[in-house]
């Protein structure tokens, strides 16, 4: 119901565009390939991309404040490595989960602290975070570690049945829950609204007395938490820890946000967007998989093309908005000006 509400509110071009895109792509797939139009193929989109949905949702908050978090991909890999190592050492599975989430929060918070306190470029700080995360996971182990822990195996293979015969994984459930929570946070908490205010206009936010620094730190904390959660979901999906997992995934997350209508300039976007972005990328991937003869790099080209279209679309929206403002100021001035002008002419 909320979703319907959001879509209907108008000015939600991007969400609408992305939804239409998914439907079109999915329709195309269904007509072209046998077996494409099945509940399970659709649910697999969630199962296979659960971690990306989580990470992209965390990233979306950062982007809405006008920042960026490049460390997410490396951090998911690091979490997989830490989990695998700790489990190998015989730690309790639930303790490991809690511990990794905590690490995520701390790591993200530290990045946010550096960015807000010392006015460092988020690009640089999170880039360093990315190096740090990858390097640390290799320091722990350069090899891939297979997870044999019972709890993790159970979580990995658990199938949650859905009406209609399909099923989803625990990871997909977590992802959906997170998206719902994120939508709630964005809409119904002070923190969520401050995120939008900071992204809309930092100096205004400061002048309005909003806690800009705290919001920045919290946002990176949340992104760190999402990376850790995504790391957990990814770990039970792969059942292995490896430092080379998900190379370049941060770009996928950013792309998902852009396609999902999160404006990279900050201040705009709905938290349902990243999920839609991930899904549309997932559908493309599935189509290419079903097609069979097209190589996997077409995914990159297609995603890149989508990215381009959406970035240009975003740009046009911004330009359009600016033009609107100018028209407003013209409207304001036109009347008095012509009036005085004619009077002046009459005088002379």
């Amino acid at each position: 119901m909320k979703m319907v509400d959001i879509i209907w509110k108008g000015n939600h071009v991007f969400i609408l565009a992305t939804t239409v895109l998914i439907i079109l792509l999915y329709g195309y797939g269904s007509f072209t390939f046998t077996g494409f139009f099945s509940a399970q193929v659709f649910l697999n989109l969630f199962i296979d991309n659960a971690y990306l949905i989580i990470v992209a949702t965390g990233m979306a908050f950062v982007i809405i404040t006008g920042g960026i978090d490049l460390s997410v991909g490396a951090f998911v890999a690091l979490i997989s490595m830490i989990s695998a190592t700790l489990l190998e050492m015989g730690f309790n599975a639930y303790l490991v989960i809690v511990l990794t989430l905590l690490i995520g929060v701390l790591f993200g918070g530290f990045q946010g602290y550096l960015i807000s306190q010392f006015d460092l470029h988020p690009w640089i700080v999170t880039l360093a975070g990315m190096f740090l995360a990858r390097g640390t996971s290799f320091l722990i182990n350069t090899e891939s570690i297979v997870i044999t822990n019972e709890t993790y195996s159970y979580l990995s293979s658990a199938k949650v049945p859905i009406i209609g015969g399909g099923y989803v994984s625990i990871g997909a459930i977590i992802a959906l829950l997170l998206v719902i929570i994120a939508i709630f946070i964005a809409k119904y908490t002070k923190f969520g609204r401050n995120v939008y205010a900071v992204g809309g206009n930092v100096s205004s936010a400061r002048l309005m007395g909003l806690p800009v620094k705290r919001t920045t730190i919290l946002v990176y904390m949340f992104s760190g938490f999402c990376s850790a959660l995504g790391g957990f979901v990814f770990t039970i999906y792969m059942l292995s820890g490896y430092g080379l997992h998900l190379l370049g995934m941060e770009m996928d997350a950013i792309a998902a946000c852009v396609i999902g209508g999160i404006l990279l300039t900050g201040g705009f976007g709905y938290l349902i967007g990243p999920m839609l972005g991930v899904l549309s990328m997932g559908v493309i991937q599935t189509i290419i998989m079903f097609q069979g003869t097209l190589s996997s790099w077409w995914t990159k080209i297609a995603v890149g093309f989508l990215l381009f279209i959406f970035i240009v679309l975003q740009r046009l929206v911004v330009i359009n908005r600016r033009r609107k403002e100018m028209e407003f100021s013209k409207e304001l001035n036109v009347k008095p000006e012509t009036e005085t002008f004619t009077r002046k002419q009459l005088d002379t």
Binding site: R193, Y196, A197, G199, G200, N201, S203, S204, A205, L207, M208, G267, F268
Partner: peptide
């Protein structure tokens, strides 16, 4: 205070 340039967030 209300400042010279509108100090509100246009996106809200």
């Amino acid at each position: 205070a209300v400042f010279q340039e509108v100090n509100l967030c246009e996106n809200l």
